[in-house]
């Protein structure tokens, strides 16, 4: 673990890999829940967790000094709330993904509906979650030319990540389907995002 100071009121904690970052993030949230860590924003990412908005530089320094000594249990696979998304596998890139995986399109659907994914982090847009869980050998490239318009609800892949576009936006991921009736983002709901970091996600074929 490397703890980088970020300005005067934030720390960037760098872990070895995604599993390490997810486990450390869970530990930070436990410590926030019982008041041992007080900080405005906690932003998990692929290999890091940003703790932003300590009240004072001293508060940040104390956590920087303590964090390497925290006992961080590994993430439990079936920990966290479960969201099931009904997906119509009608995406324009389903055939390309099948070719990339060297399987039939139906096998792509089978694989995606039997793999439990987990929201690792957000960041691209409000309500977007980077879903981890596909193995390295199923990594797919981004599209050579990003689409200027990806519709809301599009279920897409890039690298080993899956994601669901919470609203219409540009995007370069490979679109394999459409989430049906999924309110991914609702500012009147608490939390407004359906796919909060730590949430487990299953795709269910709507065919």
């Amino acid at each position: 673990m490397i703890v980088h100071p970020v300005g005067r009121a934030a720390l960037l904690v760098e872990l070895d890999d995604l599993a390490g970052a997810q486990a450390f993030h869970a530990e930070v949230e436990r410590r926030r829940a019982d008041g041992r860590v007080v900080v405005r924003d906690v932003v998990p990412a692929a290999r890091t967790v940003l703790l932003d908005g300590f009240a004072t530089p001293d508060a940040a320094r104390r956590v920087a000094a303590d964090a390497p000594g925290w006992s961080v249990p590994p993430l439990v696979a079936d920990d966290g709330p479960l969201v099931t998304l009904r997906v119509r596998f009608d995406g324009p890139d389903l055939d390309d993904v099948a070719r990339c995986w060297d399987v039939a399109p139906a096998d792509v659907v089978a694989r995606l509906t039997t793999t439990e994914l987990r929201v690792a982090f957000g960041g691209f847009a409000p309500g977007f979650g980077y879903l981890a869980g596909l193995p390295d050998e199923l990594a797919v490239p981004r599209r050579a030319t990003p689409r200027t318009v990806v519709p809301a609800g599009a279920v897409a892949l890039a690298g080993t990540w899956a994601g669901v576009y919470p609203r219409e936006s540009p995007g370069g991921w490979q679109i394999v389907g459409t989430a049906v009736d999924a309110a991914l983002w609702d500012v009147d709901r608490d939390p407004p995002a359906l796919l909060v970091p730590g949430t487990r996600v299953r795709f269910e074929d709507d065919a």
Binding site: R40, D41, F121, P126
Partner: peptide
Amino acid sequence: RPGFAHLGV
């Protein structure tokens, strides 16, 4: 709008 960075806000 502090406190929502983990949701992309």
